[in-house]
Structures are given as C-alpha cells and as structure tokens.
Design a protein around this nucleic acid. Structure first.
Lengths: 149, 149
DNA sequence: TATTGTTATACTCTATAACTATA
DNA sequence: TATAGTTATAGAGTATAACAATA
C-alpha cells in the first residue's frame, strides 16, 4: 500500500528528528536511553540493562564504562551475589536526564506550535496507536508462537 | 503538556523500531539512507550528499569509501570540474535498496495488521501531519530569520 | 558446569584539524 | 584564495570470541 510507504518514510525521518531533539551532555541515543532507564527504574544489573536496551553484554559493559568515566553512573557490588554489578545513576546523571527532558519538551512543543490545529489534533489522536505499534514492534517476537499459552 | 511527553516517548521508541525494520545487507542507518538517496535522486557530489544527510564532508568521504568497498556505489570523476567526485549507486546497491524497501514494507504492514481498524485509521490520518513535523524539524533552522528574503 | 561480567578485537559512524588538488 | 575532497586522529556505539570470577 502507498500509505505504508509514506509511513515508512516518515518513520525514517523521525529517527533524524529525535536525534536532534536533545543534545545536552553530548550523549548519544543509547547512552541517554540507559541513563533514562536508570532514573526511571532504579539501579539495575548489567545483564538486565543489556537485555532491556537490546545490546550485547559486552556492549553494555563498555557503555556503562563510558558513563562511569563521565561520572553519570556508578558500579556497585551486589551483596547477595559477588558476580553481579548494580549500575546506579549518580546525581549528576539524574540532573542531565532532567535537562535533556526539558530540551526535548521545548523543541517538541516548538515544532507542534508550528502545525495547524487540525494537524496537531491528528498527531495527538495517533499517539496511543503509535505507542501500541512500537510496543508490538519491540516485543520479543516469536512468529510461530501466538503469545502466552 | 502531558501529551508532549507521551509523544516524545513514542518518538524515541520509533527510533528503535525503525532500526529493526530493515536489516538486509547489514547496513547501518546512514549507509542505507545515502544509498536510498542515490537511487531516488541519481548521482551526486560528495559535498551535496554530506549536506543532504547532515554529515561532515570527511564523514561522507568515509561512508562512501565503505560503500565503495562493498561495491554498492562507485566514484566517478566530473568532466566539468576536476575537483568534484560524483557518487553513483551500482546495480548491486540499487538491488539492495529494493530488498530493504521490501523488508521494511513487510514488517510495517505486519505491525499495522495487528492494530485495530480505529488505530490504523488514526495512524494514517496523522501521517501528513507527522511528515510536516519532521520537515519542520529537519529544515535548516535560523530562529532569527523568518525565511528567504 | 552455568552465570556474570570483562577484555580483546574489529567494524560502523561521526567529528575536527590538517592536507592535497583543482579552480 | 576558495572549493572539493582525502587523510589523520579520536571517540561513541556495536558485535563476537575468549577469558576470569563467582555460584
């Protein structure tokens, strides 16, 4: 369908837009995502972070090391299990997440303000559906399995 | 506004989704974008490609070099001006763009099929507005300048 | 032996600075 | 001198394979 192709194009443009929406701290998308997750969900094991962000475990080790070097996160040992590392956001990291959220909100509302009321309305009506769409796309997909039995 | 925050979240999720929508040829997002542009618009100068994709000129030199190594593009000299390089997609590159487009369309229509008719409708109605939104966001922004004089 | 995490290595993506070649 | 492009260098982001430490 033609609509699908247009939607695909718009989605790809969005990728570019989102990457320019917030730039505080000079963090890339994955670094910001990890930081945001730590703020939202509290300290986490490295393995869980990797799984949650769809990265490999070594990839997450390195990302966390970079964030640690910038003192945005801390590695804490786990008392129950000597193997696990609990990653925790620092006050500085928390503050940066807040600033990015601000930036993003500012930029976005500036853009929305330039749309016609009709357009704004169309976008807002689509948000729940788009949220469902992304949730479906990001859910662990098992094509031969219709879901939980 | 609360809606803005939700929209921002959805947009970020979209970034993840788009990156998983098409994987043929193992190309990253920028590589695929350059290739697609070359298919759509024909041979281009390196400088124009860099400007069009929002990369630095050296960045584009390297990206084009990688694509050339994979024989997805070719560098051609320009007869009018010995300094310029015209980058052209090869048949293999063109074919790969086609395959990726297929993949993406498949994945996307699979996702849309899982939405309710109401949700699908809401998404489709928002596409033009979202296109405008991304166009606004990606336009060269000069806050103190209302546009071409 | 299985799990958690790190190190080693390699590749893409990206920038700035310095350079070459052509106009 | 200005423009087009490349090379040098550095850093983020990502993967797989091999390893160490703990359970």
């Amino acid at each position: 369908m033609k609509q699908d192709a247009e939607l695909a194009l718009v989605l790809e443009q969005m990728v570019r837009v989102v990457r320019r929406l917030a730039t505080a701290g000079d963090l890339g998308f994955p670094a910001a995502a990890v930081l945001t997750r730590l703020v939202r969900e509290g300290p986490q094991r490295l393995t869980d972070l990797a799984a949650g962000e769809g990265l490999s475990q070594p990839g997450m080790t390195q990302l966390v090391s970079r964030l640690e070097r910038q003192t945005l996160v801390r590695r804490n040992p786990c008392v129950d299990d000597g193997r696990v590392v609990l990653v925790e956001v620092t006050p500085g990291g928390r503050e940066l997440v807040g600033r990015r959220r601000e930036e993003r909100a500012q930029a976005l509302s500036g853009l929305l303000a330039q749309l016609d009321p009709t357009e704004r309305d169309a976008v807002q009506r689509a948000v729940p559906a788009l949220a469902r769409l992304t949730a479906l796309a990001l859910a662990p997909q098992r094509p031969t399995d219709g879901g939980p039995a």
